[in-house]
Amino acid sequence: METETVEAEAAPAGLCKGFGPQSPRDIGSLEGLNERIFARAPSTKTLNLCNIHTHTNAEHKGPGFSVFAGPGDHGGYKCNDGDQLTAEELKDPAHGFGAFKGVKPGDTIEVHWVFSSCAVMPGQGLGSCLSETCSNPALRVEAQTFLLVNDPEALDFADFTYRGHTSEGYHQPMTLPEGTGEPVVYAGSTTGPKYTESICSPLQVTWSVRPQCARLDIASLYRWAEEGNVFKEDHSHGVRQLVTAPELLSPIESTVIVTRWDEPLKVE
């Protein structure tokens, strides 16, 4: 989730200081020394969906996406089983001309559904989550990492998009992904490649990150862009490298992280 760059006063160790906890992080680690506390955003059911976008490779690191893709804007993490795809699953149905740019079969993406406490309509970028009368909203981001495949039997992105859907008066996606483990909820910030451990994001975000990958039919992502969407998304964005400095991370409460479908591991 990207925002405008804000320069922070650098600490002696090169870390920005005076900011709240940052994102992305390794959701398998509970460590964190950042003492800035803010109220957890409420359930998505009582917030307005304001934006949906993707990052090529996962910004977070998790049990199901722990393969390091390298440094820089195009680094991040890949789904663990990305090297097990068949030739057919790796075949691009658009032959390199898909309407959604920056991805191909075999790639990993992390999708962010951004929700705001402001009375806003879904739209382009983080600006759609704010308004003139609501400049400091409670923000929640639901995150799911997908492995893109050429397979019409895989998940369809249309099931997770916004198609004018409302519930109890709030703008909502059609649904959110299920079956990929209990989401790890933590206090963090907005992300995107313009931020580092020395240039921090000032916005406070409640994150809900699912720990396992799911397979997504790449043709459905192409259709989302081809048909047009209110978010004006037609390409996948770069990543912010993992934040590892404990001073920039919030502590995560004890939780259950799924390491295998049949073996939940309780992390104390």
Rank of each mutant, 00 (worst) to 15 (best):
Y222G: 06
P177R: 04
L242N: 07
N34K: 12
N51A: 15
W224Y: 14
T3I: 10
S135Y: 10
S117F: 09
D217V: 10
D73R: 02
E7L: 10
A219L: 04
T190L: 01
F100C: 10
Q172I: 12
F97R: 13
G238F: 04
V239D: 06
T196W: 14
G20S: 07
R260Y: 06
L155C: 02
L242C: 00
E153N: 14
A138N: 09
D217C: 08
G192C: 09
L176T: 01
N48L: 09
T145K: 06
L216W: 06
L248F: 08
T5V: 12
T206C: 02
T255D: 08
P42G: 07
R25Y: 13
V141W: 03
A143P: 13
Q84G: 08
L90C: 07
E268V: 15
V149S: 05
R223W: 12
K61P: 00
N34T: 00
K17V: 06
K194D: 06
V256H: 10
F38Y: 02
H165Y: 09
I109G: 13
E88F: 08
L30A: 05
T255I: 06
S208K: 07
T244N: 08
E35I: 06
M1N: 09
S250I: 04
T190Q: 07
D73E: 07
C79N: 11
G32M: 12
D73A: 03
T175M: 13
L249Q: 08
H53R: 14
A94L: 06
G64A: 03
G64Y: 07
C118A: 05
I199N: 14
T3R: 12
N34L: 07
S208F: 02
T255R: 14
P211M: 03
V230T: 15
E233K: 07
L176N: 03
L49F: 00
A58N: 04
T44S: 09
E197M: 14
H55E: 13
T145Q: 05
S167G: 07
D107T: 04
Q212D: 06
S23Y: 09
R40Y: 07
E142N: 12
K101C: 01
N80E: 11
A119P: 00
I37S: 12
K101M: 10
E88G: 05
A245N: 15
T244G: 05
V114I: 14
D107H: 12
S117T: 10
V184C: 03
P71Q: 09
A87F: 13
G20L: 05
K78P: 11
A69G: 12
A94M: 02
E132S: 05
Q204L: 03
W113I: 01
A214H: 11
V6A: 15
E4K: 09
P71F: 04
R140W: 08
V6S: 06
E233N: 07
V205D: 13
K91F: 13
G123P: 13
V67W: 00
C16K: 03
R260H: 14
E197Q: 11
Y222R: 02
D234Q: 09
L15F: 15
S66D: 07
E247G: 08
R210C: 00
T180R: 14
V209Y: 01
Q124G: 02
L221R: 00
V120D: 11
F115A: 01
K78I: 00
